[in-house]
Design a protein around this nucleic acid. Structure first.
Length: 496
RNA sequence: GAGCCGGUAGCUCAGGGGUAGAGCAACGGCCUUUUAAGCCGUGGGUCGUGGGUUCAAUUCCCACCCGGCUCACCA
């Protein structure tokens, strides 16, 4: 007996026998519970001898003739249950003998402590609430050491429900991710931000440098794209008079998949009227500290051997100055395309396809600076060519009032004082549209309605975008973005 | 897209040109305070898919599929 299909047949037979005994698991609609496993342990002094009800999945089963112990696991918490034939009678004993590891059961019984000292529920009644028809990869565990957990990454991603059952670290990571987003939402609401929802389906997807997914509306016979950012609609709302808005939503980018990229991911964007870049920096500092404290319990987080310190102001660095110290390229070398390409050649980076100084600056920054930004850091003064929606720097028209946030050598946010000059914005979008027409799939399309909105008048505004998956990854120490996305995008399993 | 690594029982893995092994899980038996429960016994595999070489391929070769990592892409 081992082929998984045989196990399934056998368990279906057990299910049939349960029904013959008048115990149909699928007739139960609820199971009120008096305590969680953690409460039973934590309040043992009060509960000893008292009756409790608790339900969960059976994750271990130790039968000993006419008695048995089993573990019930619920929401990552575990409690041991003891059952013996004399206490429950023949019928319930027969029911119990049709139970397997993986089944979901509810029990009623009194709390006691075993000879070995473990707090345990002594069963008087037991209800099978769902049969598990397959062998469950639960593994075993003692003193924090695990045996035989589900480790195959492909299986964990494709069948996340098994991963969540088998790997407590995975379960708790997704709880943390959820709390991060919850804390973020509350943080913004407390500061007067209003949450809004803007269209996912758009005729032209702009606001970021990315290639969109394409789809089609049948009735309208209209080709549509999935959004690549939230930016342009949120700024329309600032024009409309909402002064603090945010959206936490899915965006879609039709690009390669890697440990840091999933085609769909969760973006937070917020816009605050009458605020500038520095105000947004303070907000990011406050938000990260809030998340660190309220989700992870401290202003200082141990991640991958590093202590991330959110208790003090972040370091601010100038992009070009840092490139000079880390890569040895002087700001003056970025004055012409020719000298910038020469600098790239000197650093061993391919320069043939480069047509803009700004792009070269960012590539050198990514290659030589980014990975060194371990503690929370803001990089300021991005080149104008790669920042088509940001206000110009007041004294250097080749730079913008834009910054990105980094920690652990990775980017996680992007923000700027928003460009609200409709004439300048038109010129920059025309340049983008020309690049798009020339085959740069990631360039921004022209958006006449957005420009019309700016012509109505947008107050000076600070904006921010945070990749919430990236942030979850960084703060939790996850190795890949797939570990913080419940169902990451994978190729379909080949039926070959 | 390129390179490297991997895919063997439900899970975690070993093996290796001659019809495949372990632990856990499963099945049968014993066991009324166990906890990686224990003891005795049993079954379980298209070795990712398809070709090729060979008397013989799970093993060697080629192609493909899926995954992982690194790089590229991500202005």
């Amino acid at each position: 007996m081992s082929a998984e299909q045989d196990v399934r047949q056998l368990r279906l037979q057990k299910l049939a026998r349960l029904r013959e005994l008048g115990h149909d698991p699928y007739l139960f609609e609820d199971f009120p519970q008096s305590h969680t496993p953690a409460e039973i342990h934590g309040r043992f002094a009060d509960l000893e001898g008292a009756e409790v009800t608790v339900a969960g999945r059976i994750t271990a089963l130790r039968k000993m003739g006419k008695a048995a112990f089993f573990d019930l696991t619920r929401q990552g918490e575990r409690v041991q249950v003891y059952l013996k034939k004399n206490d429950v009678g023949d019928t319930l004993w027969n029911v119990f003998n049709l139970v397997d590891i993986g089944d979901i059961v509810g029990v009623r019984g009194e709390v006691f402590r075993t000879k070995m000292g473990e707090v345990t529920v002594h069963v008087r009644d037991l209800s099978v609430l769902a049969k598990c028809l397959h062998t469950l990869p639960v593994g075993k565990e003692k003193e924090g050491h695990h045996w035989y957990a589900l480790t195959d990454k492909e299986e964990r991603y494709r069948r996340r429900y098994l991963d969540l059952i088998a790997n407590e670290e995975s379960r708790s990571l997704f709880v943390k991710r959820s709390r991060m987003i919850s804390v973020t939402r509350r943080f913004l609401e407390e500061r007067g931000f209003m949450e809004v929802e803007t269209p996912v389906l758009q005729q032209d997807a702009g606001g970021a440098a990315a290639r969109p997914f394409e789809t089609h509306h049948n009735t309208l016979d209209l080709d549509l794209k999935l959004r690549i950012s939230l930016e342009l609609h949120l700024k329309r709302l600032i024009v409309g008079g909402f002064e603090k808005v945010f959206e936490i939503g899915r965006v879609f980018r039709n690009e390669g998949i890697s440990t840091r990229h999933n085609p769909e991911f969760t973006m937070l964007e917020l816009y605050q009227a009458y605020a500038k870049m520095e105000d947004i920096q303070a907000l990011v500092e406050d938000l990260c500290r809030e998340i660190a404290v309220r989700v992870f319990g401290s202003e200082k987080l141990e991640v991958g051997g590093v202590t991330l310190d959110f208790s003090k102001p972040w370091q601010r660095i100038d992009m070009l100055s840092k490139i000079e110290t880390e890569a040895g390229v002087a700001p003056s070398e970025f004055e012409t395309l020719k000298s910038a390409k020469a600098a790239m050649d000197r650093l061993g980076l391919p320069s043939e396809d480069e047509s803009e100084v700004g792009s070269i600056i960012e590539k050198i920054h990514e290659r030589f600076v980014e990975r060194k930004l371990i503690q929370p850091t803001f990089v300021e003064n991005f080149p104008i060519e790669t920042s088509p929606l940001a206000k110009k720097h007041p004294t250097n028209p080749r730079l913008t009032r834009r910054f990105e946030g980094y920690m652990l050598g990775r980017e996680f946010c992007n923000a700027f004082s928003e460009l609200n000059d409709p004439i300048d914005q038109r010129a920059r979008l025309e340049l983008q549209a020309a690049q798009l027409a020339a085959g740069h799939h990631e360039a921004n399309p022209m958006d006449e309605d957005f420009l019309y909105a700016l012509e109505i008048g947008m107050p000076p505004t600070g904006g921010l975008g945070i990749g919430m998956d990236r942030l979850a990854m960084l703060l939790s120490g996850a190795e890949t973005i797939r570990d913080v996305i419940l169902f990451p995008t994978l190729r379909p399993e080949g039926r070959d």
